[in-house]
């Protein structure tokens, strides 16, 4: 019997967690080595006394209710361990960490001797876990922040890579991509195809020579603006290079696409450019037919444009 008791004491004092025996009136009956070391309170000084003398900050009404529940139901009860510490405050000795200065505890109240109204309280230091969680949350927040910046940057780069810097229209690269997609997707149908309009500003070299490059640029921007205002939503407009623009027009037949080109031609003709006056442009139009590649389509549009130039400019030709 006495050997047993000695054995119990040894086990009690070598536990890797805080363990105390306490009754319903919060009188402490046992206080193990772990608690002595970590709280600085010796078992001689606390045994037989109320815990409240040493730790007045605890909500004793709640604590006593938990003890009572443990005893009546002979079942363990717990403290919430997810946020702040609600049981005794124990300082942390760890020097290398600065996140938590007091221990985060997981507290379990287990039935001990029901007849004597005593329970066993075991305290686990879960500070490391909490620190890990806090660090993780902090890192997660950083990642989210960096990700937003990255997404913004990526979007900007993406926009830059597909935009013509002068006119803000799509550039040639983007137009090629769109055309490729359209060729892949499209099922040809005579009434409902898509086509390409190439337009070239007439006598643009003369504009540059007479008024200078700055006015030349102004003309290009003005043409870009009037074209984008005149096309239908969904049609693709790009600057092909120099004074050449390309429009990809969906859901049209020959008649409809020529009408669109005619509309664009009139819009340019009627436009008044400050410091310069009026300009005109020539248009080459082609419609997608079965077997077309980007090259054949482009070739026919170019051919039509060439004819428009040859036949006197400021006109629309179809090929």
């Amino acid at each position: 019997m006495s050997e047993n008791l000695e054995y119990c004491t040894i086990v009690f004092d070598s536990l890797e967690n805080g363990t105390l025996i306490i009754d319903e009136n919060c009188i402490v009956w046992a206080w193990n080595k772990w608690l002595e070391i970590n709280t600085g309170i010796s078992s001689e000084s606390i045994i037989g006394k109320s815990l409240e003398l040493f730790y007045p900050e605890i909500n004793y009404r709640g604590f006593q209710r938990k003890i009572r529940t443990t005893l009546r139901l002979s079942t363990p009860t717990f403290y919430d361990a997810s946020l702040s510490n609600r049981f005794i405050t124990i300082p942390r000795n760890k020097i290398s960490t600065s996140l938590l200065t007091t221990m985060q505890l997981q507290v379990t109240i287990s039935p001990y001797i029901a007849e004597m109204q005593r329970v066993m309280v075991s305290i686990h230091d879960i500070s490391d876990l909490h620190e890990l969680k806090m660090t993780l949350q902090q890192k997660m927040a950083e990642i989210v922040h960096l990700n937003t910046i990255l997404t913004k940057d990526r979007k900007r780069i993406e926009i830059l890579s597909i935009t013509d810097p002068l006119t803000k229209l799509y550039n040639r690269q983007k137009l090629n991509d769109v055309l490729e997609m359209m060729l892949l997707r499209r099922h040809w149908n005579e009434e409902n195809s898509f086509g390409m309009i190439i337009t070239d500003v007439d006598y643009f070299k003369k504009v540059n020579d007479t008024y200078g490059h700055q006015v030349g640029d102004k003309v290009l921007i003005a043409v870009a603006n009037i074209l984008s205002q005149t096309i239908r939503t969904g049609d693709i407009l790009a600057r092909w290079g120099g004074e050449e623009f390309v429009v990809l027009v969906s859901d049209v037949d020959k008649e409809k696409i020529c009408f669109v080109a005619e509309k664009l031609r009139t819009a340019i003709e009627q436009m008044n450019i400050p410091d310069m006056g009026t300009i005109t442009a020539s248009f080459g139009v082609s419609l997608f037919v079965e077997g077309d590649t980007d090259e054949t389509l482009m070739y026919r549009s170019d051919l039509a444009l060439y004819r428009a130039k040859k036949n006197g400019r400021n006109r629309v030709e179809f090929s």
Binding site: K66, T75, Y79, R86
Partner: peptide, 19 residues
Amino acid sequence: ERADILDAVVELTNILSAT
């Protein structure tokens, strides 16, 4: 406070589950 609420919820759950 949040901590009071959490602890109260744990306490009620404790009794419910145990019984």
